[in-house]
């Protein structure tokens, strides 16, 4: 794990902290907002947040590493979250993840070689009557079949090529 020492000032993080009056109790929200600006939390960003909120770097590292949402490396262009919890298991989420691995060569928790897509396991998206469920770049999708998943992944790949 990278040490949080001698890092540079991160202007957006400083701004976001200021907007929340540099309050340490709003740390989760600040981390969400900073992550939304570039998709992940860099050493510089964490260093700046720790400084602005006057909390130790150990403390901020402890928080960031505890929660699944926070990413410490740059993500792929598109993020596909597949629900792996029981209600989706009951309608074939396991087969869906296996299909994604076979066809697109991305395993759960990993990225494609070209960095266009990444596949993440999540545990319940609150859409358990219409599973298997997925969330693609924040968009909730129900009754996902392997054909539907392929079409969605193809769309992600095409979009990455246009960017």
């Amino acid at each position: 794990m990278a040490a949080l020492i001698d890092k540079l000032e991160h202007a957006p993080a400083r701004l976001i902290c200021g907007r929340h009056d540099n309050r340490p109790d709003v740390l989760l929200e600040i981390l969400h907002e900073v992550q939304a600006t570039e998709g992940w939390l860099s050493d510089d960003a964490l260093h700046t947040i720790a400084d602005a909120l006057n909390i130790s770097r150990a403390e901020i590292h402890g928080v960031v590493s505890f929660y699944n949402d926070y990413k410490r490396e740059a993500p792929a262009k598109h993020c596909i979250k597949l629900c792996h919890a029981e209600a989706c298991q009951a309608v074939g989420s396991g087969a869906l993840a296996a299909h994604a691995k076979n066809k697109w060569n991305v395993s759960t928790g990993g990225k494609s070689a070209d960095n266009k897509i990444e596949l993440e396991a999540v545990y319940c998206l609150g859409n358990c009557a219409l599973g298997p469920s997925a969330m693609i770049d924040g968009e909730l999708i129900g009754r996902v079949t392997s054909e539907r998943l392929d079409a969605l992944i193809e769309r992600c790949i095409e979009e990455s090529e246009c960017e």
């Binding site: 209600a87 989706c88 319940c124 609150g126 358990c128």
Partner: peptide, 11 residues
């Protein structure tokens, strides 16, 4: 926080 699989009433 409604984390239980199979639940969506809060949502």
């Amino acid at each position: 926080d409604e984390g239980d699989s199979g639940t969506f009433a809060d949502r």
